[in-house]
Simulated scan of single mutants.
Amino acid sequence: MTTTHAAGSPGATPEVLRYTAFTTVPEGGNPAGVVPDATGLGDAEMLAIAARLGYSETAFLTAGSQDPAVSARDDQQAYAVRYFSPEAEVSFCGHATVAAAVALAERDRAGSGSGSAEYVFVTSVGPVPVTVTEADGTLRATLTSVEPSVEGAADDDVAEALAALGWTAGDLDPLLPPRIAFAGARHLVLAAATRARLADLSYDFERLAALMRRLDVTTVQLVWRESGSVFHARDPFPVGGVVEDPATGAAAAAFGAYARELGLVPAETVLTVHQGDDMGRPGVLTVTLREGDPRVRVSGAAVRIPD
Rank of each mutant, 00 (worst) to 15 (best):
T194N: 07
L285P: 04
V239E: 04
V120N: 11
V70Q: 07
S229Y: 10
Y19E: 11
L176R: 11
R290Y: 00
A50G: 15
S299Y: 02
F92E: 05
E268W: 06
V98H: 02
P10R: 02
M212L: 14
G276E: 10
V242H: 06
E261P: 10
A105H: 04
D136K: 13
D235P: 02
R297W: 00
R234L: 09
M1N: 03
G64M: 08
L172E: 04
P177D: 08
S85C: 07
T288V: 15
D278M: 02
R107M: 10
L165S: 12
S9F: 08
A233W: 05
P306A: 14
Y83H: 12
S299L: 05
A12D: 13
A59F: 09
A252H: 10
D216E: 13
A101K: 10
L176C: 06
M46K: 15
L271N: 09
V158C: 00
S229R: 13
D235K: 02
T138P: 11
T97W: 00
A191N: 08
T131C: 04
E27V: 04
A154P: 03
S149L: 03
A301V: 01
G280Q: 05
A100C: 10
V81G: 05
P238D: 04
G33Y: 12
R179H: 09
V120R: 07
D216T: 02
G64E: 07
I305H: 01
V220E: 06
A253V: 05
A254M: 11
Y83N: 07
D75S: 11
E15A: 12
H5E: 09
A250H: 03
P238L: 04
G249F: 01
R179N: 08
R140G: 02
R213S: 01
D173C: 08
D108A: 11
P177S: 07
Q221T: 12
Q66W: 00
A6H: 09
G8L: 14
Q66T: 03
A72W: 00
T144N: 09
Y55I: 14
H95R: 02
E134C: 01
R197L: 04
V128Q: 11
P306C: 11
G241Y: 02
H274E: 15
S229N: 13
S85Y: 07
A32C: 15
T3D: 09
G29Y: 08
H232D: 09
S116Q: 13
F205P: 00
R290F: 00
A50D: 15
V125S: 13
A183R: 06
P26L: 13
G29V: 05
V98E: 00
V296A: 06
S91P: 07
V16I: 11
P14Q: 00
A163C: 15
E291M: 02
A51W: 12
P266Q: 14
G137K: 04
A80V: 03
P236Q: 05
L41N: 03
S299Q: 12
V189K: 02
E87C: 01
A302V: 00
D277G: 12
L262K: 03
R214W: 10
P246G: 15
P148D: 06
A117L: 03
A103K: 07
A12S: 15
E147V: 13
R179L: 10
D156W: 00
G228E: 12
D204M: 02
G29T: 04
G256E: 14
F60C: 14
A51S: 15
W167P: 02
